[in-house]
Design a protein around this nucleic acid. Sequence first.
DNA 1: ATTATAATGCGACTAAGTTGCATTAAAGTT
DNA 2: AACTTTAATGCAACTTAGTCGCATTATAAT
Lengths: 135, 135
Amino acid sequence: MQLSRIIIGDGLNIENIVKKKNLKLTSARRELLEILFYAKNPLSYEDIKENIVMDKATFYRNIIKFEEENIINSFESNDKKRYFEIFQQPHPHFVCSRCHNIECIKERLDFNLEGYLVENIILKGLCKVCNKTSI
Amino acid sequence: MQLSRIIIGDGLNIENIVKKKNLKLTSARRELLEILFYAKNPLSYEDIKENIVMDKATFYRNIIKFEEENIINSFESNDKKRYFEIFQQPHPHFVCSRCHNIECIKERLDFNLEGYLVENIILKGLCKVCNKTSI
DNA sequence: ATTATAATGCGACTAAGTTGCATTAAAGTT
DNA sequence: AACTTTAATGCAACTTAGTCGCATTATAAT
């Protein structure tokens, strides 16, 4: 797969995104970003590690860099793991407490919290499937 | 302090709550529940451990029991820690990504997510204080 | 007072995430 | 194309949350 050539949004590919932030384009970074670009849901380190060759330290150092540069963002689930995804328009995530699946919520949740800046919304509970099959 | 005599809601004190669930009332459990009852914000293990004498395994085993019995509930913050609080009416929590404070949100957030059962809402971003003093 | 059973403490363990340090690779310069 | 600077990598050692098995102890009922 010629993943590094995928076009994201405004004609950007992984090379441009990384270089725009004055980061060196290494194979570790290309690998990591390709996986995240192709994922349709947020991924944890455990999800990713089987598919990468880089060291754990490299992984986390890149995660930190990418988060600083707003290339990705992350949040904690209820399984003690952090989940990573390519930075998109802020949108809520639903974490199912039964099946532990994580879904991106497309519906807009409107509420006004005076004074706060809400960057991330995590909803926990039962997803559609588990809610239907619940006792 | 005669903490075990505090009255919660329907004339319940810690003794009654624990016994109602068919759990033995040990000093570890009394200690843990007293701390959580008195906390005005959710607490992590790190917050609690200086004030308890029980072993870490006992702490977590009781946390698991209490969660099963809906005496407490917990959620993950963005500092890799789990936070615990006495189970109350479900209400959102706001986690500040700058000062890492955790607040209970009293305002009702109304939205309808068809099919899901939302048990827990975590908002992340800048709290009132940090948002005001942000660049 | 006795006893059954649940809860505790201890030690060993797992897994995420971090840090220091020596080595290597990227990207600009001549 | 070789040279150089600086950033990124791999490795090993570490920290901390959380879990588990097991022997011992405390609770609550008889």
